[in-house]
Amino acid sequence: MNGWLLAATVVLGGGLGATLWGVATGPLRRRVVAQNLSTAPACTGLILLAQGYDRPAYVDLALVLALLGPVGTLVFARLLTDELADDPPRARGVTWAAAALAAAVVLALCVAVGPSRATAKLLLVGALLIGGNVIASRALSGGIAGVRGG
């Protein structure tokens, strides 16, 4: 009974299930926020899976997701400014909650893995994920104003 896999199942099932429901229904404003929030539980789940399967090589996946997830959201923020201009998305609370969950899981894993190169990589993934999520939600809520050009 691998605790990490159980935690991964809960985080993935709950987090991605909620973001899928968020992206499927409701106004465009909420769907964009839900897409942005789909990166945090997925990245956290990937790190937990890497620990659960005892394969440190899988952390590269979480690293690439932590990098490209916010880029995907920046794409939406940049190209949908006209549609989002009327009611910009407000997602302070949820973004910080997702970031806090990610931080908690990364710290727990660092304790479990112990001081080594893998821990440094885990911390890098955590920092990129939290920074990316916060910046992306900032860009969504009017960070890129008045874009006519590219």
């Binding site: 890129i144 104003a145 050009g149």
Partner: peptide
């Protein structure tokens, strides 16, 4: 020519 977009400083720094 597209006119330059004004992007919030934190996003540009990121």
């Amino acid at each position: 020519r597209p006119e330059p977009a004004d992007v919030a400083p934190p996003v540009r720094r990121y």
